[in-house]
Amino acid sequence: MNQIRELRLENELPEGTRMNGADTDTYVRGHFRLKGWGNTRAYIFKHSPLYIVIRLADEYIVFNDTEA
């Protein structure tokens, strides 16, 4: 908990590049580099907006579920 710099909800995510992991029609899992955010670990279901965003000192973590 002491590593968390910010915790927020987002309706949209910035564009980016997958560094490794999986990107299917249903979900995205893995390490990404997102514009304006940098290193990001993503565990999200596509087409299910409302993402929980955790900002740490050197990366972001983003996740959601199939329903908000």
Rank of each mutant, 00 (worst) to 15 (best):
G16P: 11
A68S: 08
T66G: 02
N64P: 07
H31Y: 02
H31I: 06
T40A: 06
S48H: 09
L50Q: 13
D25L: 02
P14N: 00
R5D: 09
L50G: 02
G21P: 01
D65G: 04
A22K: 11
I44Y: 03
W37E: 04
L7V: 03
T40M: 04
W37S: 00
I44K: 14
M1S: 04
N39H: 06
D65N: 05
D23H: 11
I4N: 04
E6C: 12
R18G: 03
E12V: 02
H47M: 11
G36L: 02
L34K: 00
L34C: 06
M19N: 07
I52D: 14
R55Y: 14
G36H: 07
N64G: 10
F45V: 05
V62Q: 12
F63I: 12
E67N: 07
L34P: 08
S48I: 01
N11T: 06
W37G: 04
Y60E: 08
R41C: 05
Y60Q: 01
E12S: 12
N39M: 15
N11W: 09
G30C: 13
E6D: 09
Y60R: 08
M19Y: 12
I61D: 09
G38Y: 12
L34F: 03
L9C: 11
F63Y: 10
L56H: 06
R5G: 12
L56S: 03
T26A: 14
D23I: 01
N39V: 15
R33W: 11
R55W: 01
T24N: 09
G16E: 06
R29C: 14
L34G: 00
T17V: 12
E59F: 15
G21F: 00
W37K: 10
L13F: 13
P49G: 14
R33N: 09
D23W: 03
D58R: 13
A22N: 09
E12H: 07
A22G: 02
D65T: 15
K35P: 00
N39A: 06
E10S: 10
F63N: 15
G30A: 04
T26G: 09
S48K: 02
M19H: 13
R29P: 01
H47W: 00
I52F: 13
E59Y: 15
E12P: 09
L34R: 08
F63M: 07
M19D: 10
T40L: 01
A57F: 14
M1A: 09
R33Y: 11
I61T: 15
L9T: 15
H31S: 01
A57I: 12
G30W: 11
S48L: 05
V62R: 03
R41S: 04
Q3Y: 08
L7Y: 03
Y51W: 07
K46Q: 07
I61Q: 04
I4E: 05
Q3N: 14
T40E: 06
E59N: 01
G38K: 02
H31E: 01
T24P: 05
R5I: 15
Y27T: 04
D23Q: 03
T26W: 02
R29W: 11
M1C: 04
P14S: 06
A42N: 01
G30V: 05
A68K: 12
D65F: 05
K46D: 11
Q3R: 10
I44M: 08
K35H: 08
L13V: 05
I44P: 03
L50F: 02
G36F: 06
V53W: 01
P14W: 02
R33L: 10
I61W: 09
